[in-house]
Design a protein around this nucleic acid. Structure first.
Length: 580
DNA sequence: GCCGTTTTCGGCCCGACTGTTTTCAGTCG
């Protein structure tokens, strides 16, 4: 998805929020919100489209098309600027706090002049909320917890944002004459859950033109530091980007050093010390003579230390160094091992692309199979019915029959018709067994009652696993990174239930979820659990988010054998039968 | 503000929960 669309969508969403906050018509706000989602998921750069083409996008009419044109020309639109003048930035930031919406956020601002989450915390701690309509002691507690969550994520961005920024920097720097190599490093290369700043490494004899290219990027709003070895800028979105330039000869040692993690580097350097060597970002040296031994590639550096090359996703000092020393690194799953996506949506529920559009993109990704799993009726706002679901199934079957064989004479992509069920507080799901048996695959997820106490939540998830038609537990901890904490659940008990019943746990690849989190994946795998790495795509472009799920699976040490959608279709189908 | 085999106006996704109230507004999915 073009990055320009995200910027347009963000402005339209902001307008909807401010409009709602100031008591504007809720339906107009909803239309702007819907248009924003459709634009974010639109495959072409909307600022390049004609008014007529814009109005083909669902939810975009004459007025919003005009606003988009205005954004294309000026970077914003007048109606938004009028609202911004009324309400300071921080008030919108207040609504990012869970359980605090536009109405109460505005009340806080109007009554107490609270204009940011930090000011809200001060106000709560000073007892200034006492007596304010709509705020009791429970609210205060909940808000303080929410502010904590928000602050923990402050200054860090989701993987996709860091990834897109890094890709732009690499593109620009690589194009400079004299640039010999350029690649992202740091926590982005390790597929960390969030990224604090973007590290990009380049190799060149003369760093000057490369640094100038970075500071000259239109996205570079301010220059934090500018030297020959390292230059840092801050983007308009507030993200810090560090570019480091090294001689080509030091590429491997520098890439190893700047990829981290710090704990991994400390462990690797200790190995070097024991071998009477010294490892730095400039190379691996003889500790006594100071003579350089290797530095050109990461592989050489690790090999000279007696280790196989360690995939970046493993470099967290959680056993990877010991495994590498004894030759026991796992053959990690890679994106090319994934044969299909088992959790995706269409515009039948809250997706923004049609079935045909989603399937076409899945085919272009080279998948052997692809599942459509729209929401089930208990998520009331999606207005799903038996009839709509059965009609979609017929449509899927018809479409499947028309798919052309893939390149190389392979079978045409198989289409699986599925659904994403809602796990009710008691562990039951939307439909009875008879109706469920008509699906090829069922994902089941928690979408409500996130605050259940641990015993109830554990019973709930275990009961879902025990349902003979539930194949995959979707986003098992139901967390939203920086937005909503994970549910409280006895994970070992859930892992045992999954292994016993043949239910896979999802590694949801959406960069705002990454759930099951990598920290828990290894334990689940050791308990005998299988996994499904899914995009949970709601648009054509977000099918590509799958790579973040693969990175998360790698951080959990998973191999293709652990991941059901890396299996050939017959083996997958056998798993989905769940012994029935 | 968008949309239409309900098509140029009058609807628009809606039910449940929570914490606050004392009958309901706000928030969420």
């Amino acid at each position: 998805m073009p990055q320009a669309n995200d910027a347009v969508a963000a402005l339209l969403t902001e307008y909807a929020e401010l409009h709602l906050m100031t008591g504007g018509d809720q339906f107009r706000a909803r239309v702007y919100d819907r248009a924003a989602r459709a634009i974010a998921g639109h495959p072409q750069d909307v600022t390049q489209l004609s008014p007529a083409a814009l109005q083909q996008i669902p939810g975009v009419g004459q007025a919003i098309a005009g606003k988009i044109a205005e954004i294309g020309a000026t970077g914003t639109f007048a109606a938004l600027e009028r609202l911004r003048a009324d309400i300071p930035d921080g008030v919108l930031e207040l609504t990012r706090i869970p359980a605090l919406g536009p109405k109460r956020a505005l009340l806080l601002y109007r009554e107490l002049h609270v204009g940011s989450p930090a000011e809200l915390r001060d106000a709560i701690e000073a007892g200034r909320l006492a007596g304010l309509r709509g705020f009791g002691s429970k609210s205060e507690e909940k808000l303080l917890r929410g502010i904590e969550l928000l602050e923990a994520a402050a200054g860090r961005v989701q993987l996709n944002v860091a990834d897109e920024t890094a890709a732009r920097v690499v593109e620009v720097v690589s194009a400079v004459p004299g640039c010999l190599r350029c690649a992202p490093a740091g926590s982005l290369r390790r597929f960390a859950e969030t990224v604090g700043d973007v590290d990009v490494l380049a190799a060149a004899d003369d760093s000057g033109p490369l640094m100038a290219a970075l500071t000259g990027m239109p996205e570079a709003e301010s220059v934090i530091a500018a030297g020959p070895a390292k230059t840092s800028v801050r983007t308009a979105a507030g993200l810090q980007v560090d570019l480091r330039v090294v001689p080509l000869d030091a590429w491997g040692a520098a890439l190893q050093y700047f990829t981290g993690s710090q704990a991994h580097n400390v462990a690797v350097r200790e190995i070097a010390v024991r071998k009477k060597l010294k490892l730095s970002e400039y190379g691996l040296f003889d500790a006594v003579s100071g003579e350089k031994i290797v530095s050109r590639t990461e592989e050489e550096v690790y090999r000279r230390l007696g280790m196989a090359w360690i995939p970046p996703a493993l470099r967290e000092h959680t056993g990877e160094v010991a495994a590498a020393l004894r030759g026991g690194l796992p053959a990690l799953i890679t994106e090319s091992d994934i044969r299909g996506d088992l959790h995706t949506h269409t515009d039948l529920t809250d997706g923004v692309a049609t079935l045909a559009e989603m399937v076409a993109r899945a085919q272009a990704r080279g998948y052997a199979y692809y599942a459509i799993t729209d929401h089930a009726p208990d998520l009331v706002m999606q207005r799903m019915t038996d009839e709509k679901m059965l009609a979609q199934r017929a449509q899927v079957r018809r479409l499947a029959a028309t798919l052309a064989p893939a390149a190389g004479g392979r079978e045409p992509m198989a289409l699986l018709h599925g659904t994403e069920l809602n796990i009710a507080p008691d562990g039951t799901v939307d439909w009875p067994a008879e109706f469920l048996s008509g699906f090829d695959v069922c994902v089941a997820s928690v979408h409500s009652h996130f605050d259940q106490a641990r015993p109830a939540m554990t019973r709930r998830l275990v009961a879902a696993c025990e349902n003979p038609h539930v194949n995959i537990i979707g986003h098992p901890l139901a967390r939203r990174i920086g937005r909503r904490p994970p549910v409280d659940v006895d994970l070992p008990a859930v892992f045992r239930a999954c292994a016993r019943t043949g239910t896979a746990l999802e590694v949801n690849a959406h960069p705002g979820r990454l759930d099951l989190p990598s920290a828990h994946i290894k334990a689940a795998r050791d308990a005998g659990v299988r996994f499904a790495v899914d995009s949970d795509a709601h648009s054509v472009g977000s099918l590509d988010y799958l790579r973040y799920g693969v990175g998360t699976a790698q951080r959990g040490w998973l191999t293709p054998d652990d991941v059901i959608n890396a299996w050939p279709l017959p083996r997958l189908r056998e798993f989905l039968r769940k012994g029935r």
